[in-house]
């Protein structure tokens, strides 16, 4: 009978590189990873705060340093430190590699 085409020989490649850490972790891992890093915090109002994430708590209350307030892309305020009440937070985005 006709021979079925043999399966391709198994290639001895190295296993695929693990995906970058930032894609594997839980939301908690992400939050732990961005502490001390530059972040963008968007509020539900659409206002953005860009600064260094000092810390945050379970309510997503946030402490930022060297904060710039952005409204429609323009800087509208600067704060040395800023406490953001968690209920206003839409998301936290890493603004540098974590």
């Amino acid at each position: 009978m006709d021979e079925t085409t043999p399966p391709p020989p198994p290639e001895e490649h190295s296993p695929p590189p693990p995906p970058p850490q930032s894609h594997t972790g839980s939301p908690t891992d992400f939050l732990k990873g961005v502490v001390g890093k530059r972040v963008i915090v968007r509020l539900t109002s659409g206002v953005d705060y860009q600064g260094i994430l000092s810390c945050l708590d379970g309510y997503m209350n946030i402490a930022l340093e060297q904060t710039e307030e952005h409204v429609n892309g323009a800087i509208t305020n600067r704060y040395g430190d800023a406490f953001i009440r968690g209920n206003n937070v839409l998301y936290i985005s890493a603004a540098e590699t974590i």
Partner: peptide
């Protein structure tokens, strides 16, 4: 950033 001694947002 780590020198300010803030551990949770309410410390601020």
């Amino acid at each position: 950033p780590s020198a300010t001694g803030i551990q949770e947002p309410f410390d601020l």
